[in-house]
Computed example of a mutant assay.
Amino acid sequence: MSEIEIVLPAIESADTVIETEVGQYRVAGLHIPEKRVMADPALLRDLVKAARTAASNAHVPYSHFLVGAAVIMADEPAGNVITGANIENASYGATICGERNALHAAAAKGFRRIKFLALSTADSLDGPLPDRSPCGICRQVMREFIDRDEAQDAALIMMDTGDADFTADILDIDRLLPYGFRL
Results as ranks from 00 to 15, higher is better:
residue 115 K to L: 08
residue 72 I to P: 05
residue 79 G to D: 08
residue 81 V to R: 03
residue 83 T to Q: 14
residue 71 V to D: 00
residue 86 N to P: 05
residue 74 A to Y: 02
residue 90 A to Q: 14
residue 95 T to R: 10
residue 84 G to T: 07
residue 96 I to P: 00
residue 89 N to A: 14
residue 121 T to H: 09
residue 116 F to W: 13
residue 103 L to T: 02
residue 118 A to P: 07
residue 100 R to F: 00
residue 105 A to G: 06
residue 78 A to G: 07
residue 89 N to F: 10
residue 117 L to S: 08
residue 99 E to H: 04
residue 76 E to L: 02
residue 86 N to G: 10
residue 105 A to C: 03
residue 120 S to H: 06
residue 102 A to G: 06
residue 85 A to R: 10
residue 121 T to E: 11
residue 118 A to Y: 09
residue 117 L to A: 04
residue 100 R to V: 03
residue 92 Y to L: 04
residue 108 A to H: 14
residue 87 I to M: 13
residue 73 M to Q: 02
residue 88 E to G: 04
residue 66 L to W: 03
residue 98 G to K: 08
residue 74 A to M: 03
residue 87 I to D: 15
residue 114 I to R: 11
residue 114 I to A: 02
residue 85 A to S: 15
residue 106 A to F: 01
residue 79 G to Y: 11
residue 99 E to V: 10
residue 66 L to Y: 06
residue 118 A to D: 13
residue 95 T to C: 04
residue 87 I to C: 05
residue 119 L to Y: 09
residue 102 A to K: 06
residue 97 C to W: 11
residue 110 G to V: 13
residue 88 E to H: 10
residue 90 A to Y: 14
residue 112 R to M: 12
residue 85 A to K: 06
residue 93 G to P: 05
residue 116 F to R: 11
residue 86 N to T: 14
residue 80 N to F: 03
residue 117 L to G: 08
residue 105 A to P: 06
residue 115 K to I: 04
residue 119 L to R: 11
residue 81 V to Q: 04
